[in-house]
Amino acid sequence: MASVRVETLVEAPAEAVWDAIADVGAVHRRLLPGRVADARLDGDTRILTMPDGAVVRELIVAVDHERRRMAYSVVGGQRMPLAYHHAAFQVFAEGDRARLVWVTDVLPHEMAGHVRPRVERGLAEMKDVLEASAAWPR
């Protein structure tokens, strides 16, 4: 299985970054507005609606508050020809900032080269949104 690992430093407290990651039903508002039009939960399944109307179903595997780790697996609506997809976010405190790590495992192996730029772009968008929201008092 191929793994894609990307990380970034976010100019926001780890607690705030984790709060957004752990809010799995609000990815369209708190992490990827514009890229995800809507999100809703059906039990352990997160159903994402994209701006073009496409629907992606993700099984939320774990939300571990102690380790600040959230894991999910795409189980339907994948836009790429993947036989397997599992990913996890983890948030680490680094002083007043947060290190956000996103690891995505995919099969077939050769798809990792197609997945990496999407994950990198997604993480950069999340960083921008998280930093912008950290600048605003709640």
Rank of each mutant, 00 (worst) to 15 (best):
L82A: 08
T104R: 04
D19H: 12
V106Y: 00
V56H: 01
R67V: 07
L48P: 01
M70N: 06
L59H: 15
M70Y: 12
T45S: 01
R116L: 15
Y84S: 05
R29C: 02
Y72E: 00
A71V: 05
E15G: 08
V55H: 03
R5L: 14
A62L: 13
G113K: 09
A26F: 01
V106I: 10
E66S: 14
V24P: 00
L9M: 14
H65M: 12
R99D: 05
H109G: 13
V4D: 02
R67E: 12
D44W: 08
R30I: 03
A14W: 08
A71H: 02
T45K: 02
R57D: 01
V101C: 10
I60S: 02
L59I: 11
A2S: 13
P33H: 07
M50P: 01
V56R: 03
V101E: 08
L32N: 02
V63Q: 00
E66F: 08
E7Q: 14
V10P: 05
R67C: 07
V106F: 01
A71L: 04
R116V: 12
L107D: 14
R40P: 03
R57A: 06
V4H: 05
L9S: 08
L59A: 14
Y84D: 11
V103Q: 10
P81T: 13
R99M: 11
M50C: 06
V106M: 06
D23S: 11
L59G: 09
R97C: 10
V27R: 02
D64V: 07
L59R: 15
D23F: 03
G34K: 07
L9Y: 06
F89S: 02
Y72S: 00
A93Y: 10
A87N: 05
A14R: 06
V17K: 06
V106R: 00
V91W: 01
D42E: 11
Y84E: 12
R97G: 03
A62N: 13
L100Q: 04
V101N: 05
A16N: 07
E94L: 12
I21T: 03
R46I: 01
H114T: 15
V10C: 04
R57T: 06
D42H: 08
A20N: 02
I47H: 06
R99A: 09
T49R: 07
V55M: 04
V91Q: 09
M80E: 11
G76R: 11
H86I: 14
D23Q: 06
V27S: 04
P13N: 12
H114C: 11
P13G: 15
M50G: 03
V63K: 02
M80C: 09
W102P: 00
A71Y: 00
A62I: 03
E15W: 07
T8F: 06
V115W: 04
R68D: 04
D19L: 13
R79N: 13
M111F: 09
D44Q: 10
I60R: 05
E7F: 12
P108S: 09
H65V: 12
E58N: 05
G34V: 03
R30M: 06
T8V: 13
L59C: 10
V61K: 08
F92D: 10
V36C: 09
Q90E: 15
L41R: 10
L32W: 14
E15R: 14
A83Q: 15
I47T: 05
